[in-house]
Design a protein around this nucleic acid. Structure first.
Lengths: 129, 129
DNA sequence: CAGGATCCGGGCGGATACTG
DNA sequence: CAGTATCCGCCCGGATCCTG
């Protein structure tokens, strides 16, 4: 797992959840993977899709994703350099998670990063107590 | 968002993914939420479910989850103290994500935290290139 | 274009001690 | 039981400069 961001998990039932999260957390990984769902992207293309990421971090996260086998890095021997990133077969399998995240985010989060409905709102709306 | 672990996200398409992840990352949150799927738990019950977490971290993460409206904290005025944590209505809505994570983890990760099949394996198995 | 190298501060998170 | 308080090391991640 590259550098083991989560130090370690001694397994209890929820272990695989932890492990799964371990692969897609890391501040930018999920967003990167999400954008790669649309297809292959070059380095600076990803940067443009995620303006807030620094090139250092982008390189880092891409390296870790590659080390974890989630993405594939293809280098073209030419100048100026051209490097393409795409989801590996394993990476493709996390699509359900990403779309679930996206769906949930779209549903429950405003554009400001704040939950748009509070627990109380939802209580009144859907759940009968 | 409590203390804004992810500083901020200036929104591009994948923003809501980032935002969603922002709520469930934080080293232990996903596991905590996952265990709360089974129902209400007391503080030390959660600790026992997640041996690797320290009480400091557990308190932290619980506070953040509460601030984000994902869990509910119920304090019983009695001694010795009794505090129960449970998923809020909003928290319940992330169940699909958690189960997706669990499913993916169970499927693709061994008990050691390493992906059990490499990209190459999967390539040979399913995808024709 | 796609990075590598270095410097550096902030905060995440562990360990320990104390409390209502 | 369910925390709070404090100290502190580590490394995450930003900023900047350099390269094939």
């Amino acid at each position: 797992m590259a550098k083991a961001h989560h130090t370690r998990f001694d397994c209890s039932p929820g272990c695989s959840v932890e492990a799964a999260i371990g692969l897609i957390d890391g501040k930018w990984k999920s967003v990167i993977l999400f954008h790669l769902l649309d297809g292959t992207l070059r380095f600076n293309e990803i940067r443009r899709q995620i303006p807030a990421v620094t090139q250092r971090m982008l390189t880092n996260q891409l390296r870790e994703l590659e080390a974890d086998g989630l993405i594939t890095r293809k280098v073209y021997a030419q100048v100026p350099p051209k490097v393409e990133y795409s989801l590996s077969p394993l990476g493709l399998t996390i699509k359900p998670i990403l779309t679930a995240l996206k769906a949930w985010g779209d549903e429950n989060i405003g554009l400001y990063g704040k939950p748009k409905q509070t627990a109380t709102d939802l209580q009144a709306a859907s759940i009968p107590a």
